[in-house]
Computed example of a mutant assay.
Amino acid sequence: MTPLDKPLRRELQVGADAFTLTIDPDGLKLVRKGKRNGIVLRWEELVNGDAALAKALQASLQTQ
């Protein structure tokens, strides 16, 4: 198996919008194409089941 030791970036379409998905040793980051801020999920959050809580917190902070 190949270790994940550097970021892996892929572009994807969700409906009409383009996003960049970055997978790295810390977790996942999904950002709308051309933007800097997006949704970040750390591997620990996913494994511990805290992903939904972390996502909701990030969304509430971004709307302020």
Rank of each mutant, 00 (worst) to 15 (best):
L61D: 02
K55Q: 12
Q62T: 14
V31L: 05
E45P: 01
L4R: 05
T63L: 13
K6R: 14
S60L: 13
L30G: 01
Q13W: 12
K55D: 06
L8Q: 08
K55H: 12
A52T: 12
K33T: 05
R42L: 10
E11F: 12
S60T: 11
G27Y: 04
A52S: 14
T63A: 15
K55A: 05
E44N: 13
A18M: 11
G15Q: 01
N48V: 06
R10D: 08
T63C: 12
R10N: 10
A16S: 14
G38D: 04
G27S: 08
L28F: 04
V40C: 00
T20Q: 04
Q62F: 11
G49H: 07
L21F: 00
T22N: 00
G49P: 01
K29Y: 00
G34L: 07
T20S: 03
L46S: 09
V31Y: 01
D26F: 13
R36D: 05
L41G: 00
E45M: 00
D24R: 07
D24Y: 03
E11Q: 15
V47Y: 04
K55N: 11
L30Y: 03
Q58S: 03
E44A: 14
I23W: 03
F19T: 05
R10K: 11
I23Y: 04
G27N: 09
A56I: 04
Q13S: 14
L8C: 08
P25N: 07
R32I: 07
I39G: 02
L4T: 07
F19K: 05
G38Q: 03
L12K: 03
A59S: 12
V31W: 03
R32V: 11
L8A: 07
L12D: 04
T63V: 14
E44F: 10
Q62Y: 13
T22K: 02
L4H: 06
G49L: 10
K55F: 05
L61S: 07
V40N: 02
T63H: 15
R9H: 13
K35M: 06
L21W: 02
P7V: 00
W43K: 00
Q13V: 12
R36H: 07
I39L: 12
N48A: 09
E44P: 02
Q13K: 15
L53I: 10
Q13N: 14
D26R: 14
V40A: 09
S60W: 12
T63N: 15
Q64I: 15
G34F: 10
E11K: 15
E45I: 07
A54I: 01
Q58R: 04
R10V: 11
T22C: 05
P7H: 00
A59M: 11
L21H: 04
K55S: 10
A18T: 13
L57D: 02
K35Y: 08
V40I: 10
W43Y: 01
G38R: 01
T63Q: 15
A59H: 05
I23R: 04
P7K: 01
L30C: 06
V47Q: 09
